[in-house]
């Protein structure tokens, strides 16, 4: 087993987002929400969305989760502000492709946003990939479950 670089995983961007996440909390009014779980480790995240005219206006989240999951949630919440559902679907597939092989330069689409490159080190920490994916998958579920 070769040496892994812990500092590359806990990149400054990730630590900063995890320590003071953007858009943390509950939206006063929301059209969608979903509670996502990582059955393996017990991480939990609730995603709240305000969707209008096929656009995600705003996302907020609450969580009991690790730094990787919290940073991913925070960065996701910034990224999806005021984007169309169509664009969301594209970036979701970009993120999935990127996380599947984070070190492969061809797997990263710039339209995802450069800051997500902070997750490149997940290549060496495959057990943590699902932490980064959890908020994205939870958002996907949230969109399919409308608040009545």
């Amino acid at each position: 087993m070769t040496k892994v670089d812990i500092a590359s995983l806990y990149h400054n961007i990730i630590i900063d987002h995890a320590k003071s996440p953007d858009n943390y909390g509950k939206l006063d009014t929301y059209t969608h929400f979903y509670e996502g779980h990582n059955a393996l480790c017990g991480d939990k995240i609730i995603v709240y969305l305000k969707v209008e005219d096929s656009k995600i206006k705003e996302m907020k989240f609450e969580s009991a989760a690790c730094a990787i999951c919290n940073a991913s949630s925070s960065m996701l919440s910034d990224r999806v502000k005021d984007i169309s559902i169509k664009e969301w679907e594209s970036i979701l597939s970009y993120f999935r492709r990127f996380i599947a092989s984070p070190q492969n330069p061809l797997s990263f689409n710039n339209r995802l946003g450069k800051s997500f490159l902070a997750f490149k080190a997940l290549e060496d920490f495959p057990a943590r990939k699902k932490c980064a994916l959890l908020p994205w998958e939870t958002l996907e579920y949230a969109l399919s479950e409308k608040v009545n």
Partner: peptide
């Protein structure tokens, strides 16, 4: 302030 998962990876 430090989640168990991060403790484990560290």
């Amino acid at each position: 302030g430090i989640h168990a998962h991060d403790v484990g990876t560290f």
